[in-house]
């Protein structure tokens, strides 16, 4: 085997190996940081992108929550508004009813008062008519007309 012919084969190979491998090592030592750097940069970029996406997601989440809270608030506000409007309306209604009742009561009272006044008046007139009628009847029967005061006393006596 030529490989074991060391005297001829070993030294030039070892020298050239030292030279070429040494150069290769120096080249690789100079070049590998770039390779590692790219990988690192990629990792950090991907990490940054993921972070940004996560942040965007969180942002959207908070926005959605705020939106939902806004809707809920609006809804409760509207509900409150409706409630108060209802209450106001009921109050106004009540007041109106009360006013109307009062007006009606006043009118009834007035009408009753008028009625009793007129009745009193009528009753006074009726007495006068009765006295007159009594004077007439007595005049026709007796031919003399009684005094007005006597007739009135008789009417009052009969009426009671």
């Amino acid at each position: 085997m030529p490989q074991f012919d060391f005297a001829r084969v070993a030294l030039p190979q070892i020298i050239w190996l030292f030279f070429s491998f040494g150069l290769l090592f120096l080249l690789m030592r100079a070049m590998l940081p770039k390779v590692a750097g790219v990988a690192e940069r990629r990792a950090s970029t991907i990490g940054g992108d993921l972070d940004a996406a996560d942040k965007a997601r969180l942002d959207a989440e908070t926005r959605r929550e705020a939106y939902e809270a806004g809707i809920a608030k609006t809804r409760t506000d509207a509900q409150g508004l409706i409630e108060s409007a209802k209450a106001d309306a009921a109050k106004a209604n009540e007041a109106k009813m009360k006013a109307a009742d009062e007006a009606a009561a006043a009118k009834i009272a007035a009408a009753e008062a008028e009625l009793s006044k007129q009745r009193d008046a009528a009753l006074v007139k009726l007495d006068a008519i009765a006295v007159d009628a009594t004077q007439d009847v007595v005049e026709r029967l007796t031919g003399t007309r009684p005094a007005m005061a006597a007739a009135a006393a008789a009417v009052a006596q009969a009426g009671s």
């Binding site: 001829r8 030294l11 030039p12 190979q13 020298i15 050239w16 190996l17 030279f19 070429s20 491998f21």
Partner: peptide
């Protein structure tokens, strides 16, 4: 002997 050989050429 540091000759450029087929071996060193391949290296």
């Amino acid at each position: 002997d540091l000759s450029l050989t087929n071996s060193s050429a391949w290296m």
